[in-house]
Amino acid sequence: MQPKESGKLIYAFPPYHKLVFSGDKKVCVLIEGLVKIKKSDQEVTAGPGSFFYSTSDVRTLKESRVLAFDLEKLKREQPELASKIQSELEKNKKETGKAATKPHSELMYEKAVNCPVCGSRFQALNIFDYKLRFSKQDPDLRQHYENVEPMYYDIWTCPDCLYANLKKDFLSTADSEAKKHILQSGAEKRRQENPDGLKEPGSIEYAIRSHQLALSCLEAVEAEPMKIGNIWLRLAWLYSDRGEKEEANRAREQALQFFMDAYTGKSSLHLKPGQMEQLCYIIGILSWYTGNNKNAMDFLLKYLHSPGKKPRLAEFAQDCLQEIKKAGKNQAGDD
């Protein structure tokens, strides 16, 4: 399919189409969108700012705009610029081979992100949600997948100031000058505590450290307790995966405390009905996990009597209540 020309050098392509250009070989720069570049038996997903040749096997994954120009002509007219572009193309060619060796590379794409704290621009790894293969859900809301662990990639971390947060909240947390200033002031401490920075996403070590960084950033700006509790809960899952039982229990207790603060504090006024119901559920489950059966019963019964309860979570809640009642009978029998 021939591209739709939207300017002298810029072409627009619809989603899921192969990029085809008429005329001589051109150098292309992706301005907007997402593409998949195939070379031999390797496939790399690329975002805005990526360079490739017009003769490459490239397909769009979403609506995209591409800048295409004649490199030889540019060499004659602007040799310095052409040399820089040539170097970038060679660099991309080398990195294409590396990308294919990364774990789960077929599930990933990179996105250029501007850090809202220090302004640095970096490439963040993302998972194609539609490629995730769901396996099961635990009572404490953790979801398992057959092909990848999303928590290894869910936290974006700025490589310069080490500001970290869940990708869905990365840009919005520093939404005021006061919060931005607090996070900027803490950058040096974050660097001192992490002198070698963070390793690439994709390991449990990165996941735990990035979640710890996100936690410190959220606590510094006094984020909503619901968001802080969510990070503590995710840390409990990660500690459990690594066999650190005591750390996992401590993280659950911290998560429970912040969820209780969210339920009883001012932030509860801003919760939607569905969020309040889910909050009741997770408080009940975590109370059970941490040995507070009375609190577990109170909140799980509240959830079961809520109009918006979800069937699967209601089953978990009923199973939990049965376990609590059974434990109570056994204890009474022992007495």
Score class of each variant (00 low, 15 high):
Lys4Met: 07
Gly7Thr: 12
Gly7Cys: 02
Lys8Met: 02
Ala12Cys: 04
Phe13Leu: 12
His17Val: 15
Val20Pro: 00
Ser22Cys: 03
Gly23Cys: 07
Lys25Ala: 10
Lys25Leu: 13
Cys28Tyr: 09
Ser40Asn: 10
Asp41Gly: 09
Phe51Asn: 02
Tyr53Phe: 11
Ser56Met: 06
Arg59Cys: 01
Thr60Leu: 05
Glu63Lys: 15
Ser64Ile: 14
Arg65Glu: 05
Arg65Lys: 15
Arg65Ala: 04
Arg65Leu: 08
Val66Pro: 04
Ala68Ile: 12
Leu71Thr: 10
Lys73Glu: 09
Ser83Asn: 10
Ile85Ala: 07
Glu88His: 08
Lys91Phe: 13
Asn92Gly: 09
Asn92Trp: 13
Thr96Ile: 15
Thr96Trp: 10
Ala100Thr: 10
Lys102Trp: 11
His104Cys: 08
Ser105His: 15
Ala112Tyr: 01
Asn114Asp: 03
Gly119Asn: 07
Ser120Thr: 13
Ala124Glu: 04
Leu125His: 04
Ile127Pro: 02
Ile127Cys: 03
Tyr130Phe: 13
Lys131Met: 12
Lys131Tyr: 14
Arg133Met: 12
Ser135Trp: 08
Ser135Met: 13
Gln137Phe: 00
Asp140Trp: 14
Leu141Cys: 04
Arg142Ser: 04
Arg142His: 10
Glu146Trp: 07
Asn147Tyr: 05
Asn147Val: 11
Val148Lys: 03
Val148Ser: 02
Tyr153Val: 09
Asp154His: 13
Trp156Glu: 01
Trp156Leu: 11
Cys158Thr: 05
Asp160Gly: 00
Asp160Val: 12
Cys161Asp: 01
Leu162Tyr: 04
Leu162His: 03
Lys167Val: 08
Lys168Phe: 11
Thr173Ser: 05
Ala174Asn: 05
Asp175Arg: 13
Lys179Val: 11
Lys179Arg: 15
His181Gln: 14
Gly186Thr: 04
Ala187Asn: 09
Ala187Thr: 11
Gly202Leu: 06
Arg209Lys: 12
Arg209Asn: 03
His211Ser: 08
Gln212Ser: 09
Leu213Ser: 01
Ala214Gly: 14
Glu219Tyr: 01
Glu219Thr: 13
Glu222Cys: 06
Ala223Pro: 07
Glu224Arg: 13
Ile231Thr: 05
Glu244Met: 11
Glu244His: 06
Glu247Lys: 15
Arg250Leu: 11
Gln254Ala: 14
Gln254Ile: 06
Gln257Ala: 13
Leu271Glu: 02
Pro273Trp: 08
Pro273Ile: 14
Met276Arg: 15
Gln278Thr: 09
Leu279Ser: 04
Gly284Ile: 11
Tyr289Lys: 15
Gly291Lys: 11
Asn292Gln: 14
Lys294Met: 07
Phe299Met: 07
Leu300Asn: 02
Leu304Arg: 10
His305Pro: 00
Lys310Phe: 03
Lys310Asp: 11
Arg312Gln: 11
Ala314Arg: 06
Glu315Phe: 14
Gln318Lys: 15
Asp319Val: 01
Glu323Gly: 02
Lys325Phe: 02
Lys326His: 10
Lys326Ser: 09
Gly328Asn: 12
Gln331Pro: 00
